[in-house]
């Protein structure tokens, strides 16, 4: 019975993937038709091509980047910025979240400032970071950190607050000291919340990196887009967006993979381990 059901799901999934591909194809064909003088007037095609670029040229540009090897250096820079922002932002958020969640006084004291800093549109800090840290990767990492920190911080804070009192008492009865409680109960509980917000925080680290590059840099995919925009090279801009999108999807898939590995203990996370 379960076999039948599973097969059914798989067929639907396969179909779905096919429809997804078809939908993408339709969009590209429509794009192509609107920007070439086949069905539409030459003037209309010229105008749309100016604003939206031509799909074949965009794909060609993308192909050139990868085949010519030019893109890898920029992708690597963006990746490094994203990973650094994510790693440092998570570590800081975890530390601050644990500290404030376990210390009511510190929490009460810091509360309005945390709220204010979170409410502030932090992208506006990018120019300041550029002044402080220069146009290298540091200013991008700093921007990413400010974005990642708050996501992780609030999740850790929540995670610590929501530790089951029964589990906590159980650990105490088993003889846990304060440090052991922190390591075996609070941190794992907080980490589960951090992991469940991985998609958002990695995404934010990526946004920080790209926005930082776009506002001023010498390398990175955001820099490529900035350069192309300056030259009104709309095809390259779209190629850059395409690469960034694919890159973000790849990162997201990586996060899903890590999530499934790290949260095996969570109900519903890994069906294969179930009886």
């Amino acid at each position: 019975m379960t076999d039948g059901r599973k097969r059914e799901v798989r067929i639907t999934r396969g179909r779905l993937a096919l429809y997804h591909a078809l939908l993408l194809g339709v969009v590209f064909v429509f794009w192509h038709l609107m920007t070439n003088p086949l069905l539409v007037s030459e003037e209309f095609a010229r105008n749309t091509a100016f604003f939206f670029g031509k799909p074949l040229l965009v794909l060609e540009k993308t192909w050139d980047w990868f085949a010519g090897g030019k893109i890898y250096e920029h992708l690597l820079v963006t990746l490094i910025e994203t990973l650094l922002a994510f790693g440092i932002g998570t570590a800081l958020g975890l530390g601050a979240g644990l500290w404030l969640a376990l210390s009511p006084l510190a929490s009460a004291l810091a509360d309005p400032y945390i709220k204010a800093m979170n409410a502030m549109p932090r992208v506006i800090l990018a120019p300041i970071f550029a002044v402080w840290f220069g146009l290298g990767i540091l200013s991008k990492v700093a921007l990413g950190i400010t974005l990642v920190f708050f996501i992780v911080f609030f999740n850790v804070y929540q995670g610590v607050r929501e530790v089951s009192p029964v589990v906590l008492n159980n650990a105490r009865m088993l003889g846990a000291g304060a440090g052991q409680l922190l390591r075996t109960v609070y941190v794992p509980s907080a980490m589960s919340w951090v992991f469940s917000s991985l998609h958002t925080s990695v995404g934010m680290a990526f946004v920080g990196a790209v926005v930082g590059e776009y506002l001023g840099s010498a390398r990175g995919v955001g820099y490529l887009i900035l350069q192309a925009e300056g030259a009104f090279d709309i095809n390259t801009v779209f190629a850059g967006i395409l690469v960034l999108t694919a890159f973000a999807l790849a990162l997201d898939a990586l996060v899903s993979f890590a999530e499934n590995r790290l949260l095996v203990w969570r109900p519903g996370q890994s069906e294969t381990d179930l009886l």
Partner: peptide, 30 residues
């Protein structure tokens, strides 16, 4: 805390992020 007592709770008190083995080991680890 009563060091001579073991406590069995009404609700689930196992640490959900530890395997059964690690849960049983926990007190010894402490």
């Amino acid at each position: 805390i009563n060091r001579h007592a073991g406590y069995m709770f009404q609700a689930d008190a196992l640490l959900p992020w530890l395997s059964a083995q690690d849960n049983v080991e926990l007190g010894l680890k402490y």
